[in-house]
């Protein structure tokens, strides 16, 4: 039964999770790199990362590299699992499997 994840389903959050999921486990992307990859604005990206962090799908680490602040976003194990399930559901929908009842 196809069951989409409402948190991941939003287009920008889907892109964020796709980008983070493409990295080896435990490795993250810097905020500026994520912004470039997704084409999002600072504010929009920040808000959606916060939503994902509240769901424990990503962790956000802030550090200083030299004198420059650097924010790194990393997908958690549960985020990776949720993303994999979401992608599987998308494939089921394409294959004609009916969506799950709410």
């Amino acid at each position: 039964m196809a069951e989409l994840d409402d948190i991941i389903h939003q287009p920008l959050r889907l892109k964020i999770m796709a980008a983070l999921n493409a990295l080896p486990e435990g490795q993250g992307l810097e905020f500026v790199r994520l912004k470039k990859l997704t084409g999002a604005t600072d504010g929009n990206l920040g808000a959606h990362i916060e939503t994902l962090a509240r769901a424990a799908y990503v962790t956000v680490d802030k550090a200083f590299v030299g004198k420059k602040p650097q924010t790194t976003v990393t997908a958690t194990a549960s985020g990776r699992g949720a993303f994999a399930r979401h992608v599987a559901s998308l494939r089921e929908i394409i294959a004609g499997v009916p969506p799950a009842e709410t």
């Binding site: 389903h9 287009p11 889907l14 892109k15 796709a18 980008a19 999921n21 493409a22 990859l37 997704t38 992608v87 998308l90 494939r91 394409i94």
Partner: peptide
């Protein structure tokens, strides 16, 4: 959505 994912990857 899948096409968006593939593009980002």
């Amino acid at each position: 959505a899948l096409s968006d994912i593939e593009a980002i990857v």
